[in-house]
């Protein structure tokens, strides 16, 4: 119950933040630009639109997740708004969970609107919906799962470091995670100390690349049901672990 109130308030904060709208406008501009680009190319109009559209949703979604995520907890501590929350019958872990759900909710609404934008652009281009469009929907869902994961580790970082440090770390984590497939193959083939590091990195860093199916989907390929289930499960478990770790740190932390 209290988690819900905190989430709702976090959502309200994000919705009243101008940064959010700037980023959304950029995302729409990018989707629009892919429509224009589609007119000057041949044969790959749909691929281009899907690829660029998904990239825009993911990129701006991740930006929002990181930029709002770093301040989610630290801003409340800095501005001492946390004092009047934690001295109420609210557990610290409830506070963390509420903040997390608030931002994830914001991102869900965001992704929904940007997804609508992409589908409108698709409709405008092809004048009909195809079966393959279902997989675009799945790709958008996967992009949302990426944001769910990014939000979780951003929050974890911000629970023990400054906002700038957290942003840098979160961005690095996201980029490395996007290449986690290569990390996995490196850990399989490398030797010695490199193998140890690559293996640890490959399993600690989230597997963002598994959640990126945009190129396959742009080519009209199907996404297996099992893949959807596995990815969903993975995203939830990984984020859960990160949020629990953030709560653990927050639980023991002094509010200066």
């Amino acid at each position: 119950m209290r988690i819900g109130y905190i989430a709702a308030n976090t959502f309200r904060e994000a919705v009243r933040d101008r940064v959010l709208y700037n980023l959304i406008v950029f995302a729409f501009l990018m989707i629009g630009a892919s429509l224009v680009l589609g007119q000057i190319t041949i044969g790959v109009e749909r691929e281009l639109l899907v690829n660029l559209g998904l990239a825009a949703i993911a990129f701006f979604g991740v930006l929002i997740a990181i930029f709002i995520g770093i301040g989610l907890v630290s801003k409340e501590i800095d501005k001492r708004t946390v004092y009047t929350v934690l001295t109420r019958p609210v557990q610290r872990w409830q506070f963390i969970l509420g903040k997390y759900f608030g931002l994830v909710g914001t991102l869900a609404v965001n992704t929904f609107f940007m997804g609508c934008g992409l589908f409108l652009a698709l409709l405008y281009m092809t004048h009909k919906f195809e079966r393959a469009d279902i997989y675009v929907l799945i790709a958008i869902f996967f992009v949302f799962l990426q944001m769910v994961i990014v939000t979780s580790f951003t929050m974890l970082f911000s629970s023990f470091s400054t906002p700038i440090e957290s942003a840098v770390m979160a961005f690095c984590f996201f980029v490395i995670g996007s290449f986690s497939t290569d990390l996995h193959s490196l850990s399989a083939s490398a030797k010695g100390i490199v193998k140890v590091f690559a293996t640890i990195a490959a399993y600690v860093v989230p597997n963002i690349s598994a959640l990126n199916v945009s190129t396959a989907v742009a080519h009209g390929e199907a996404v297996a049901g099992a893949t959807v289930a596995l990815n969903l499960g993975y995203a939830l478990l990984y984020s859960g672990a990160m949020v629990a770790a953030a709560a653990l740190i927050f639980q023991r932390r002094n509010m200066k």
């Binding site: 596995l230 478990l237 990984y238 639980q251």
Partner: peptide, 27 residues
């Protein structure tokens, strides 16, 4: 809460790794 949260981190992360292993194998 500290004990519960520590357990949660461990269990959730381990399960995530198991799924990750499956995802890798499928891909």
């Amino acid at each position: 809460p500290t004990v519960t949260l520590t357990l949660a981190v461990g269990i959730l992360f381990s399960c995530a790794l198991i799924l990750l292993h499956n995802i890798d194998a499928r891909r």
